[in-house]
Write a protein that binds this DNA or RNA. Structure first.
Lengths: 292, 292
DNA sequence: GCAAAAGTGTTTAAGGTACACCCATGT
DNA sequence: ACATGGGTGTACCTTAAACACTTTTGC
């Protein structure tokens, strides 16, 4: 490569001559909330929750949106996500994974804005959210994401399978909702999947779509991965871990089988829990040797 | 929502007031090339190949890069990828999947340019590339992607596992190369993976990293998915399908077991192949009923 | 004692791997 | 005849699913 000519080219090059979109990072931050029970014997119930921010600016004023914001020069999109999470939820050093980039033309009424979505997982204690009813309130919403319909239609030269999910976000008496249709088209040459939102209530922009995508990702990548550990403290009981799986998958698992399945990924410690109305249990930690 | 106030806000809103990056879509287009043998009995050998474009402009003049280009207003990034593939490789109606968005600060010497990478799969015949030695030559490079080293180091409060892959792209006497280190850090609170390029030769920008990411994606998602079918014609023999798997995984499979494994995803037809120096074989087609 | 959770064992089914074997074709 | 790929069967092992059962605690 001719370095001199290259430098010459670069000094005369102006990116501003071309159209540019605004680019944002939005974060789907999940945590596990413990719901205490009054029965002294029973364990607290674990609920998967997602962090939402109430918008106090147009557009979508008074709607709830994912934390996020515009990328700045001299930072990667991951940096943007980290910075925004810190600013809006007081959390740092958190597990972060890139999900997908959303670029639908009409996804933001302000104009051409592309969003790169990230998944964040952490214990609730790591977050320091500005709770309450102030301007930009951040709150944890319990999430429900259920398959409510599944159908298959014939289309030209192929088939279209539709899975309809009902997304529900609940915080005290606030309830946000949307239906998400995941449509997969199978045609002669190719196959493509798209997400479509209907019956949306209270969720800003295309963020219901992003949350749906994040839920699919979480459920698909939970098994055999180490995602669940990110939602637990360093030391945990096997039942804790199982309940995280159950909260994410929305499905009951058999303790005996679950224990065998994850036995290679955890290490027993000498610590035990006490004070519950039943037999104490050993605490485990993750076995990073077995992580790929 | 107060629609009037919202509209008022939007007319006074100017995205241009904030810094904006340029955004591009780059495509890793794979196909299977058949390498004929002189032995009349033997089947042609299948090679996984990736499409590369020779740059005739600065920066990276005379280097090879992935097809791609800048996003335009009024198109999604997927539209950008489709348009660029059509312009640069004469292909349309192709299987396309979003991979990852790359936003390293110094990834492009021209400035702040973010790239959304797509994976494209199709038969070679679907492409109409401008072969030869003209200005913007597009060529298929046979791809090799081998794990050449694996190690694990202790770091502060954790561990770092490094897998070193050797990427080789070959077309006639041209050989492009890079080593890709996939580093996974396991620390107390979180885990993160990053790709790092060393010993790069002839590949523009961070495109070696993008190709590495695409190979990981292909190999991880091949099983149980329908990706392999996109690389084959509508009707194919089971050995064709097996060879596609073998070309992607770089690993020999046992025919008996392979057939059982994919039997649910294919439908036998009445057609048979003839003229090979051995027993004719049945042609199959994909069974989209079984696709999820 | 009893309810709840902690933890172990056993039976059966399903799935993957390796290998042996026969079949059909063009030269 | 024979090399090559097409195609089937089978024994073996590993993993997963379902269920029964014992242990240990706080009240």
């Amino acid at each position: 490569m001719n370095q001199k000519k290259e430098n010459e080219f670069l000094t005369n090059y102006h990116l501003e001559n071309f159209d540019r979109p605004s680019v944002a990072a939005d974060i789907v931050a999940f945590t596990i909330k413990n719901k205490e029970t009054d029965d002294y014997r029973k364990l607290s119930k674990k609920e998967l929750s997602v962090l939402m921010i109430k918008r106090n600016e147009y557009p979508f004023k008074d709607y709830w949106a994912l934390p996020g914001g515009f990328a700045r020069k001299d930072e990667t999109l991951e940096d943007t996500a980290i910075r925004e999470l810190n600013e809006e939820a007081g959390v740092s050093d958190i597990a972060l994974m890139q999900l997908q980039t959303f670029s639908d033309i009409r996804r933001d009424p302000r104009g051409w804005i592309i969003s790169c979505a990230y998944l964040a997982l952490a214990e609730e204690e790591q977050f320091h959210i500005t709770a309450g009813s102030d301007a930009a309130a951040a709150e944890w919403f319990q999430i429900k994401y259920d398959l409510i319909q599944e159908k298959s239609e014939e289309i030209m030269q192929g088939k279209c399978k539709v899975k309809r999910f009902e997304l529900q976000l609940m915080h005290s008496d606030i309830k946000l909702e949307a239906n998400i249709d995941i449509k997969t088209y199978f045609t002669a040459k190719k196959q493509r999947t798209e997400y479509e939102i209907t019956n949306i209530q209270g969720i800003a922009f295309d963020h219901a779509k992003i949350i749906g995508f994040a839920m699919e990702y979480l459920r698909e990548n939970l098994n055999g991965s180490k995602l669940a550990f990110e939602l637990l403290p360093k030391y945990f009981t096997l039942t804790d871990l199982q309940q995280v799986y159950e909260a994410i998958l929305d499905e009951e698992l058999l303790p005996a089988n679950f224990r065998r399945k994850i036995s290679d990924f955890v290490i027993e410690t000498d610590e035990i829990t006490k004070g519950a109305g039943h037999r104490p249990s050993k605490l485990f930690k993750r076995n990073i040797e077995q992580f790929n």
